[in-house]
């Protein structure tokens, strides 16, 4: 029970994929322009990570060492394709807004890293805890990045079509820089420095 909690909470702060491990930055930078995208990407990402961790942990005794990386990649790519087709067929609205980001999950190195570093060495229950913890950590990181970018880039916050609030002077002169790719690097860098400075995160 204790280890379960540890495996779960590790991904949130101590081994946060974005801010500590600096993994999966490419999709994180690409889709963190709005809270909606952050939530959708986190959902799809967590599902694939969870399924991949479960399958890899169940097969960990059988997978020959020499081909483990190709096996992981085949498993992950298959899961992503299934998610992609299912979304297109049954949730076309979500598929439309996340369309091009879903295939990006295949190359999201966090999932491969968790398969290699955790699921291939631990049991199913622990791997589930690890996947959910990493998913929450990824989600929090995505939300904090996209919160800053959407707020400064558009001057207002919306979540799934519901308007939260507007900062009038900012909405009249939005800092579009934050929505551009370079703005993503800027925000991630500032947040990284901030969390280090606050002592929230320390490199392992």
């Amino acid at each position: 029970m204790r280890s379960l909690k540890k495996n779960f909470s590790r991904g949130i702060v101590r081994a946060n994929p974005i801010f500590i491990l600096l993994l999966g930055l490419c999709p994180a930078l690409a889709v963190s322009t709005s809270l909606d995208n952050a939530v959708g990407m986190t959902g799809a990402f967590t599902f694939v990570l969870l399924a991949a961790n479960i399958i890899v942990s169940l097969l960990r005794e059988q997978i020959p060492d020499r081909v483990r990386i190709p096996v992981f990649i085949v498993i992950i790519a298959t899961l992503v394709t299934i998610v992609d087709l299912m979304l297109q067929g049954f949730v076309p609205v979500l598929s439309e807004s996340l369309g091009m980001f879903i295939p990006l999950i295949v190359v999201n190195c966090i999932i491969l890293a968790r398969a290699e570093a955790f699921a291939s060495k631990n049991g199913m229950i622990d791997s589930i805890a690890d996947a959910v913890g990493i998913g929450v950590g990824f989600g929090l990181a995505m939300l904090s990045i996209s919160l800053v970018r959407q707020l400064f880039g558009t001057g207002s916050l919306d979540l799934f079509g519901r308007h939260l609030f507007t900062i009038p002077p900012l909405a009249d002169n939005p800092v579009v820089f934050f929505l551009l790719p370079m703005g993503a690097f800027f925000v991630v860098g500032i947040l990284l420095a901030l969390f280090r400075w606050m002592g929230v995160s320390r490199s392992e």
Binding site: T81, I82, L85, Q88, G89, F90, P92, S95
Partner: peptide, 15 residues
């Protein structure tokens, strides 16, 4: 993947 394709082909075309 073949199974997924078979299940989702119709809904995707309809969508």
């Amino acid at each position: 993947l073949i199974a997924t394709d078979a299940i989702t082909r119709e809904p995707i075309a309809a969508a």
